[in-house]
Design a binder for these strands. Structure first.
Lengths: 342, 342
DNA sequence: TTGAAAGCGTTACCAG
DNA sequence: CTGGTAACGCTTTCAA
């Protein structure tokens, strides 16, 4: 086992220069109290010895480690990776470090991560609620203990905790309208578990569009189980086996949409003429599939920037519980425009 | 500005119980020196007060913060995200925290990140070299200063620093063989800039397979420009316009492969019968396209596990400079198996 | 079985 | 302008 050599400390520099620790500390902070010549000597030596302040000593004193914790349901998904990237950059700009931990959509992991973050003494937490989470007491605890906390995308919204979300209802409304404008007569909605708020909101937008366009609302056309490729496939299979199958699908997630496309193709139906489809996903993946998928695109990087700013504001005392809504963009591609449109 | 309330300390507990700090400290460590009754009282109160040891105080004393730093060229790419996920889980299992920082493929960022990591006093660094990096002195410095350092995927290989890489040449060799076995007569290779070592290695494997199978090597069928969707599309368009076009394509990257598929389809050629194709990508995205893409899949999660273990071993004194090669897997799907195969 | 005290590296206050 | 010292929260001798 190699010995880790002790890092250079203020004392080392003070001793070498025959001065005191306080003087060295002040000099390195460029205090006006110290003579220029002394400052020069000290700074030069510090650079030479590669002095770095020991962050543990500083934090012990100041209790502001400039670290924030991010809870993400899943690092690998493009959507979340891109948000993290946005958070990261904003954090760095404000000289904060970031610790990322994935709940893998599990409630237990989520609780454990929060414990870990508290043990590390993060200054604040940026969280996206796991799919499994139905009880929010662990988050309420944080709030009650005045630990800076903000949410993104999937939020626990008690009106008090700042959060950044996308315009879920609006985007689903827009998307449904677009399907109707392009000849769809019976539009299905595939979502995730009903207790998740983005599911509720997007479904709400979908229903609202149907109402506003005087479409009949058919419960059979709404399938809400779980967010995933297989679920998208299964749901679509089932929908298309109905006596009166849909001729359009709004899938509220990328894996759902790709699963749905696969099911449609496996049933030898054509997209968009037999069934048009809209998903929620990023630009790249919409283009990889055939036909290119019309999709709602989230401004994920920006969401990351904003939610990080929200946390930093909170840390600095802004308790306004602001809610930021990031508009999403409907990118129309081939999958939604029926050619036999009237 | 709200006051952050001070966290419970050993002293608080000692005072409340009318005992001493040392006793509390020992009791919480379950020391045999303390009477059972005292331990009980202390532990109960500690739990009640939600006591957490202050990590800064502990680290100040012990100098082992159990944090490791990860340098990644880009968090958003599935490949890297999945490796990070693997590192993360192994780190967590060994009760290490992880700090992730993205170089965005920039040399300057990479150097700055290393500085930051040193300031935070990470116990070790796991790095993937940015595409821009040609000078490795910042890494050599770490090595010379005995800071635990390991590489993954894109490595600085001086034979001394442990690293985890994939079997680039082998996988391309395997993939090319597979195309040949499935009836391909003229196989093209689409890669990226020639100075990148994974490009060199994969091209080498491709050429070796051609030689071993007594295929003629045709420079026209090797296109190496840039890793990207548009490049894949353009290259394929050009290849298929040759007087003697290829009947198979090995694309050394996911976006290249998807671009190539799009080009083939736009030319109204069939996959795999007119042109078979193999890419490098993850399972999910291979399934999203049609036909499902035969692809070399990296065991990214495992790479993450392994590289993290390598670092932990290094931290624990193993200086053997081990190099681990993670085999990749050729997942045969529809895009490479010609039906009119002899 | 328990307590007192030194020390980790830094900052900030008080003296000079 | 500079130096001494207390304090941050904890672990670890040393003493009792």
């Amino acid at each position: 086992m190699t010995q880790k050599k002790r890092e250079v400390s203020l004392k080392d520099i003070a001793d070498e220069l025959g001065t005191s620790i306080s003087t060295v500390s002040r000099a390195l902070k460029n205090s006006t109290e110290i003579s220029e010549s002394m400052k020069d000597k000290i700074k030069t030596l510090a650079r030479e010895r590669n002095y770095r302040p020991n962050p543990f000593a500083v934090n012990l004193l100041k209790n502001s480690p400039r670290i924030i914790g991010i809870i993400v349901p899943d690092i690998v998904t493009h959507f979340f990776a891109s948000i993290i990237s946005g958070i990261n950059d904003t954090a760095r700009t404000n000289s904060y470090s970031v610790i990322i931990s994935s709940s893998n959509e599990s409630y237990d992991n989520e609780k454990r991560i929060i414990e870990d973050f508290l043990s590390i003494r993060v200054e604040g937490i940026i969280a996206c609620v796991s799919q499994q989470t139905k009880d929010f007491s662990h988050y309420e605890n944080l709030y009650n203990n005045n630990i800076p906390l903000v949410f993104y995308d999937r939020v626990f919204d008690n009106g008090l905790i700042p959060c950044v979300v996308s315009d879920n209802a609006d985007s689903a409304y827009m998307a449904t309208n677009h399907l109707i404008e392009n000849g769809a007569k019976r539009i299905a909605f595939i979502g995730g578990a009903n207790h998740i708020d983005i599911v509720k909101e997007r479904k709400h937008g979908y229903l609202q569009s149907l109402r506003d366009n005087n479409f009949k609302i058919e419960p059979k056309l709404v399938v809400c189980n779980h967010l995933g490729y297989n679920e998208g496939y299964a749901a679509t299979h089932k929908l298309l086996s109905l006596r009166q199958p849909p001729d359009a699908i709004l899938a509220m997630n990328d894996s759902l949409a790709f699963g749905a496309m696969k099911a449609i193709k496996d049933l030898r139906l054509s997209i968009p003429d037999d069934v048009s489809i809209i998903g929620y996903t990023d630009e790249q993946h919409s283009l990889y599939v055939e036909p290119a998928l019309t999709a709602v695109t989230h401004q994920t990087y920006k969401m990351g920037n904003e939610v990080c700013k929200l946390l930093l504001n909170y840390i600095n005392g802004d308790r306004s519980g602001k809610k930021i809504i990031i508009p999403s963009i409907l990118s129309v591609r081939d999958s939604s425009v029926k050619k036999n449109n009237i």
